[in-house]
């Protein structure tokens, strides 16, 4: 007893060599992980910075609003920019409502049976299919089989292809957002006799809308950047539209240009293009995506601010 008491009295909380080793490991781990996190930012800054700096001499309002001339090596990117906006816009117009509603069904209504499991499995696998495969599917299904433009490529075929490609990802991200709403909220609703729809409309959707939007927004950048699927189904290297006025009529049964395809063409096929041109096109592409994302984020903030809390 006495020895124990004296032992207590001399407690100094001094670190042993083992403790010091643990502390050192802790430091090393922290630095290592921190460096990895920083390593993510560095390429982003380098790539975007390099592109913008290289493309800077050519960037101007003119560059955006004039059509390419002289085989693409002179002039701007107007037709390609509009083509990309059309493709992204139409594909999201198709895939966002279908994807969100399908996810609502899968998450809120579907019982856990073999059918639901097969659908969920299909969603996951479809999300992993390479985009060129989607392109080939679109070519077969929308260009040749559905014959939307007499066997030729069209904006609508490309938009449908992009929609098929983004659909599973939108479903997956929407489901994620919906299932982050606690089950207790749903139970509270059911137990006062709310139908599933009333529960979804009044409680589940308002509490998951920003997550759903985030998932949809992320698909904007993905669809804008895709080249392979649209190349096969609706995008061509040379198809001008008039650059007059803001109310644009671009027949959806026609083909169009797209920034991603234009960039590929200029960088690899066109001879005599100024060195800054591909970088300028890339800057416009990145800028367009950032702009759309920013708009969506502002919309999200607006939705949140409408709630009183």
């Amino acid at each position: 007893m006495t020895s124990r008491a004296s032992h207590l009295a001399v407690a100094t909380f001094a670190g042993t060599p083992f403790v010091r080793r643990k502390e050192r490991n802790e430091m090393v781990a922290k630095c290592f992980f921190g460096m990895m996190a920083a390593a993510m930012i560095v390429p982003l800054i380098l790539i975007v910075g390099y592109i913008v700096v290289q493309g800077w001499p050519l960037l101007s309002w003119e560059f955006l609003t004039t059509n390419p001339r002289g085989g693409g090596v002179r002039g701007g990117v107007w037709s390609a920019l509009i083509g990309t906006l059309y493709l992204v816009g139409f594909s999201l117009l198709i895939s966002a409502p279908i994807g969100v509603l399908a996810a609502v069904y899968l998450n809120e209504y579907a019982r856990d049976n073999w059918f639901t499991r097969v659908v969920n499995l299909a969603v996951v696998n479809l999300a992993g299919v390479p985009s060129i495969v989607h392109g080939l599917f679109g070519l077969g299904a929308f260009v040749y089989f559905a014959n939307l433009n007499e066997g030729k490529k069209s904006i609508i075929a490309a938009a449908l292809t992009l929609a098929v490609m983004t659909l599973p990802v939108i479903i997956a991200s929407t489901k994620e957002a919906l299932s982050s709403v606690p089950v207790s909220f749903r139970e509270a609703c059911w137990n006062v006799g709310a139908t599933r729809w009333q529960t979804i409309w009044r409680i589940v959707l308002p509490n998951s809308i920003s997550g759903i939007l985030t998932g949809v927004i992320l698909q904007v950048s993905r669809t804008a950047g895709e080249t392979a699927p649209v190349m096969l189904t609706g995008v061509t290297t040379w198809k001008m539209i008039e650059s007059t006025g803001w109310l644009l009529y671009h027949p959806v049964k026609d083909q169009c240009m797209a920034l991603s395809m234009h960039l590929y063409y200029i960088a690899t096929q066109a001879s005599g293009a100024p060195k800054a041109l591909p970088f300028a096109i890339a800057t416009v592409l990145v800028g367009a995506v950032v702009l759309v994302n920013a708009t969506a984020i502002i919309f999200r903030i607006y939705l949140r601010s409408r709630k009183k809390w």
Partner: peptide, 14 residues
């Protein structure tokens, strides 16, 4: 369910 209400273990206000 309108006529048979339930109160849960954890309070679950909406």
């Amino acid at each position: 369910r309108k006529q048979v209400g339930m109160v849960f273990q954890r309070p679950n206000p909406l």
